[in-house]
Design a protein around this nucleic acid. Sequence first.
RNA 1: GGGCGGUUAGCUCAGCUGGUCAGAGCGCCUCGUUUACACCGAGGAAGUCGGGGGUUCGAGUCCCUCACCGCCCACCA
Length: 793
Amino acid sequence: MKPDLDSLTAKWAERWEADGIYRYDPSAPRERTYAIDTPPPYASGEMHVGTIFGYVQADIIARYQRMRGKTVFYPMGWDDNGLPTERRTQRYFGVVCDPSLPYDPDFQPSMQGQTPVSRRNFIELCERMTAIDERSFEEAFRAVGLSVDWTLLYTTIGEKAQAVSQQAFLDALSKGDAYRAHGPTLWDTSFRTAVAQAELQDREIRGAFYELDFDGIKVKTTRPELLPACVALVAHPEDERFQALLGTGVKSPLGDEVPVLAHRLADPAKGTGIAMVCTFGDVTDVIWQRELDLPIRPILGFDGRFLADTPHIGGLTVAQGRARIVERLGLTPEPITHAVKFYERGERPVEIIPTEQWYLRNGGRDAELREELQARGRELIWHPAHMRVRYEHWVNGLTGDWLVSRQRFFGVPIPIWYPINASGFIEFDKPILPNRLPVDPAADTPPGFDAAQRGRPGGFTGETDVFDTWATSSLTPSIAGFEGTMDLRPQGPEIIRTWLFDTVLRSHTLRDELPWKHAMINGWILDPDRKKMSKSVGNVVTPLGLIREYSPDAVRYWSAAANPGTDTAFDIGQMRVGRRLAMKILNASRFVLGLPSTVDGSDEALDLAMLAALSRVVRQATAALEGYDYATALDLTERFFWRFCDDYLELAKARAYEHGCPPAMRTALSTLLRLFAPMLPFVTEEAWSWWQEGSIHLAPWPAAGNGDPALLDPALLDPALLGLAGEAIGAVRRAKAAAKLSMKAPVARLAVTCDEPSWELLSLAANDLRAAGAIASLEHVPGDTLTFDVTLT
RNA sequence: GGGCGGUUAGCUCAGCUGGUCAGAGCGCCUCGUUUACACCGAGGAAGUCGGGGGUUCGAGUCCCUCACCGCCCACCA
């Protein structure tokens, strides 16, 4: 029988699931538990290879810890709540949510167009959508051998997540960490929802400067359409050019009287040195409005159109309004390219619109909390360590509290109702809290009321906003169901400011503890040509395609070769190498196990030297894994494994055929398989199953003192013998290759020049060496420099 | 504008606290069907360690500086 890599995958994935070998044991004490806060991916569309990359790295740690005797809390979750799901649902089913419509229990999507549906219908379609996507993600994760305990599966839109999220919000509310406020809000006009600072990204777009004339004062702006919202001009207090104007008023080009004021943030070097303040054009306007106590003149509506009563441009879009103002004032565009803030999933720049929203305190306006969070960041152990600075910069750069309310549908509802007083006014400052969770205030009735009182004087109204998706996913430890500080958070670098920071924040404010001890940040996947991953590599670049073509162990090998934080090129070549290694492991195992195991098979010096060298590898690889340095562990193991095959097995082969397999050879095989097991779980399990009971993934990690007596004493014998004998056989091979002879060609004489101790050492393996090299005569030439002189016949 | 990481053989990358660190694999070339392995084995060629300064007896390894690549952050009138 020939080992067949491709039939292993399904076989072992099914067996592991059936045997439940990755089940978490909740009865184990904390010190024998290792808990991982797995990133719940957005299971939307086709999985990216980068996703597999990061998850495999976490899985290596999980498998290592399991072999160290820990029960591993290793859940999977699907982060399905939120805007991406809504967008996919709209496109896939051809619908759009209209909350004013009644629920239609028999609704069938037409799969095209934009059919308006009720909120409840829309949510049901979102749930159907996520179910489809999540199946394909689970298939890919199983195929690549993630050792998650699938019984712990959760979703961020699920009942448990909703209850946890709502409870955390209510706790924050009672502590004063959550509050409702009216103020300038970052707003995406296409999705018509508020967004948070963490969801912004800069994009370079083409725009233009326009020069406006305020009573002869030239002011440059990229947004002339906001002129009707202009409430002041601002110059730097020490800018001599505008000293005389400060405190006076000027007329805007539209005829409004605005004051000229001083503020330190006005930069004399920008534009003409004096800026117009509009409510609101950008974040600086917000600061100026607040700090200079300026009036707010809102002109832009939620839909991105100017309010009907806005002079000159009422009802127009931003772009139309700009064109109208430019035309009316006869402005000349001066084209520029500039960075503008976008909602990361949006298509138009964010606007700033005054609204009522819910906030969570995050240290953005509270130096004390900020310092506490910095302390948490220092307490956390980062892999690699330099990733901590991203966290620190983010915390220091926070400009306001965390806006958590979203005017969307497929999210966790904010669990609040408001009473309506006898005059019909909503009393926002007297929220009604739920007495059970989860609730949907838009559909459920609050305690003490009946459904008929909804929207009536003396009755109630339900909050219709939902939470920002991070407000829920920042609670993954609790949603997954783990109490206390976990061990590891593996994740990508791009979500340190969101997921990692938010989780630290919630854990700190709600439970006064760090959510996990370690954070392992994976690197980026780069295209072979250093660009973003693209189609250039072909359609094989789906994880399942790669797994099928190269085997899961091969894909894992590629992932395992990059340590945390290290960017990695997408490299088919590495997967080929991984596949070859997997194959070699099977073949070497088959060879060792196929040797006769006669009674007189006993260890000789070479065998013990090999074991001594392996013992050192075990220690080094273990130390590396303890430091989350799995790539080094793999490298050490792989390096030794090739020496084991090329030198040791070749040297010991003839003797083993004749006298049987030396015990050390089997010990080494057992050890090597276990060292490889976290990275290459399929082939190691296959080879293990040929001669061992139980799963290798539950076998003890090789280390002195846990089952490998031969490894107890690393000084059993000088490991140098393996190196010496390896060099000797190498010299013989070189000579044969140079003479273009077969490796089987006989050697008349091998003369070894070396000192006396080396010769004594080498002599211990003389028989093996003669047999492996077909050497007739082995001789010693005294000397200090090790050289080999090969005489071929 | 600030910060973080990177720049080592054609390619992908190791090289920790300075002195066997100039390495591995892929690719390439040559040879070889040896009773584990042709989804193979053996051997070989190949680099002034991004540029320039400096510290040191000695620097890919420390310091300064410049360039380029990637990323993060920024109050981008």
